[in-house]
Design a protein around this nucleic acid. Structure first.
Lengths: 348, 348
DNA sequence: TTGAAAGCGCTAACAA
DNA sequence: TTGTTAGCGCTTTCAA
């Protein structure tokens, strides 16, 4: 039997079953018991619906119930495995609760982020998970004030009364920097991400704490970069290695940054790790298969995604107002093989 | 001014502006000219809408117009960079045409794929891009027959009257195998993906053609694996290297397969590429940064995604029926450094 | 135990 | 140039 050109409506089913639309609706929504509908009627309706391949229109249902069953996810770059993983986790978690997910890619611009969120709210989404660009939060706070449940992931904001989930960037960076220092590195280049974003600033802060504890002077001119991208990592590294050949180690604040660094170092002819140690943030499923298995401050991406979904679902269920909070997920320092003592120490 | 608890409707705007809903609707849909609405009225309506932060309900609009502005994307694994990239391309392309995208993850099971597609159609999506699991196509053909525009990507089907976009698996595999053979390899292990899927079978076919041309007997017992996953690649490799230590090269039919192979080879103590050459399919942005920069039959993921979107958009615009076709995207063999002549040849 | 009817917010045909 | 109204497909109140 070919699918009908015009979709089957509840009315069609009701007529075919010889009952009213209300009865059909009640049966098909599992409210037969509640309304004490006779078994005969129930089976009849179900049978007809089945045979007609009836699929209720979510659109009509949404309009009537004000519930769309839709969750919006906005990330700055879907091709970045980190954000793709977050999107995946939310998608899977949402689904077990009967929600579908609309994914949008802000391409690292706040302007697009704002616009996309507008389009999503017009679609009556019931909740929002945003990995923000991280510079501006005004539009996100507006969303919150309009009572739409919203959870921020990764690039969170300070003094911001929203539900937020992120890694303990400061602690992670601290441990990584401490490791570099303990190995004897003193001239360390830093490849930073987007300045002004909390992850970036927190990582820098953790790094500086480690320097202070080791009583090593932190040289701010060794910090380069303007984004969490490979391009930024590449350019910063080229720049740094040329102007400061005495650098013995690099701290990349993101995996793409580290990728760029590896490419630049190869071009310039600095062997990693013998002639240049590298430690990086994030993690990718490939980090251990690299030329040099990268030592990494590993973020638990899956946990970040699961946690965000969990909170969102909780907010979705709670009719009452919820208490915004900042949830930090632990990072783990995985020391692979990209950190060795600096050459000068080896030869001494 | 705080956002109102109850969203602003067109009726609210019309009342506040002192006009009828139809006039408000027409102005806000840019039909002021068509209906020769006075400038004064138009500005007035716009001003009021603006000040009330009116956002038209897409749900109501969809119900009325039968157009949801929604496109569905179903992939077997969103955490696989290949599929994430496809999803991203479709998302971006769709957006320039005013569509939003609902992303769903079938987790490599046809059953889930079928269910997800059902949920998507209930949401009145206007089109569908599916990277199918690839074993069963019945439900996809049904979609097509119901007149919902659908484009299949990557795991296409034979003799299937749908719009399909995929790589030229056969040619790509042929060149890779030819390269291995030219280097002198004769005992080549094959790590296959999901048997029965077209990409898998086509790649095997291309490989066999290369063997035939080189007049080398193809040994089917050297083909192992049951999926495009890292696990499958790992297990097949462990297995192969132990039972057939005379193998000098591996042909991995997917990047995850190759990853697993690298891990297994490392464990067993076979150095790549000196003691074991590897060539693989797909490509990842990381392939050139691996321990051993992997020689790869590179699929143009971006082009696959863009092409799929392009065709879908075209189908969306065409009111008339379209002509289904299979579109093949060229692959490129990138020879990095994971293929060298077999050891025996070196020592002879 | 079932049915009639209102109405969600919008567009568009028709009327004025 | 503007307004009135029907109706998209569904849920739900109210009535029987």
């Amino acid at each position: 039997m070919p699918a009908p050109a015009h979709p089957v409506t509840l009315k069609n089913v009701a007529e075919a079953a010889g009952v009213s639309v209300s009865v059909a609706s009640r049966v098909l929504n599992g409210k037969a018991k509640t309304y004490r509908i006779s078994d005969a009627t129930e089976t009849q309706v179900r049978k007809v619906a089945q045979s007609m391949a009836f699929q209720p229109s979510q659109v009509a249902r949404s309009l009537r119930t004000k519930r769309s069953g839709l969750i919006g996810v906005v990330v700055p770059d879907l091709s970045n495995p980190f954000f793709a993983a977050i999107a995946r986790e939310v998608t899977l978690a949402a689904e077990t609760d009967g929600y579908s997910v609309i994914v949008a890619d802000s391409r690292e611009t706040t302007e697009r982020e704002r616009k996309l969120i507008g389009e999503l709210t017009a679609r009556q989404i019931e909740g929002l998970v945003v990995c923000p660009v991280g510079i501006d939060s005004g539009h996100l706070i507006e969303v919150h004030q309009s009572k739409l449940p919203i959870v921020l992931v990764d690039r969170t904001f300070l003094n911001c009364d929203l539900m937020q989930v992120t890694s303990d960037h400061r602690v992670g960076a601290y441990h990584a920097a401490a490791l570099l220092l303990a190995q004897g590195h003193r001239t360390i280049g830093v490849l930073q991400g987007l300045p002004g974003t909390l992850p970036n600033e927190e990582r820098l802060a953790g790094l500086q704490t480690a320097f202070a504890e080791a009583e090593v002077v932190f040289d701010p001119t060794l910090v380069r970069g303007d984004n969490f991208t490979e391009r930024s990592g590449y350019e910063s590294t080229s720049d740094l290695l040329k102007s400061r050949p005495d650098i013995t180690a690099l701290f990349a604040l993101s995996t793409p940054n580290a990728m760029g660094a590896l490419r630049a170092a190869t071009e310039i002819g600095r062997r990693v790790p013998d002639e240049l140690s590298i430690v990086t943030f994030d993690d990718s499923p490939f980090a251990d298969l690299m030329q040099v298995p990268l030592s990494t401050v590993c973020q638990d991406v899956s946990k970040l995604g699961v946690s965000a979904s969990k909170w969102l679902i909780r907010m979705l269920r709670a009719k009452r107002a919820y208490q915004p909070a900042l949830h930090e997920i632990k990072t783990t320092l995985i020391d692979r093989h990209s950190i060795v003592p600096p050459p000068r120490l080896l030869s001494s």
